[in-house]
Write a protein that binds this DNA or RNA. Structure first.
Length: 128
DNA sequence: TTGTGTTTTACGACCTC
DNA sequence: GAGGTCGTAAAACACAA
């Protein structure tokens, strides 16, 4: 899929070793993850995966805007407001945090890349 | 159409507190 | 143990050819 973030982190850590050591634990010899069983959620009685409505997403976004983490109470309240399973709300927040983190990473990468390019230009000017 | 790339929803494995 | 991240499967969607 999308390897942009990995590329960015590779470049950043090349330029600034140690920057991501806390965010990116070394997974060098990562263990193989087990494949998920297909359509295990028989709880939904064969229901297909459904996109959330615009209204639901809007309310979730509003809540995410005010607080990125979700206490049990707030999760249950939100879920009943949205007519969703609390588990769906929790998953939505997990995925939203992941997207937010990627976005931040991308911004950070752009900033670092720009400043790196500026420095390279300055260096060339000084050398010439 | 349909083949293909991207986004979204959902879950398993593992980690942390 | 509950709830977090990470990696990824699979459905949904967008869209060029």
């Amino acid at each position: 899929m999308n390897h942009k973030v990995e590329d960015q982190m590779a470049l950043i850590s090349q330029l600034y070793p140690g920057v991501f050591t806390q965010m990116v634990p070394q997974q060098g010899e990562s263990k193989p993850r087990r494949r998920r069983k297909k359509n295990k959620d028989a709880g939904l009685s064969g229901a297909k995966k459904r996109k959330l409505s615009e209204e639901q997403v809007n309310l979730l976004e509003m809540n995410f805007g005010s607080e990125h983490k979700l206490e049990s109470d707030r999760k249950d309240k939100l879920a009943s407001e949205l007519g969703l399973d609390p588990r769906q709300v929790a998953v939505w927040f997990q995925n939203r945090r992941a997207r937010w983190k990627n976005k931040k990473l991308e911004e950070e990468y752009t900033k670092l890349k720009t400043s790196h390019e500026t420095i390279v230009v300055e260096k060339c000017q000084l050398e010439s």
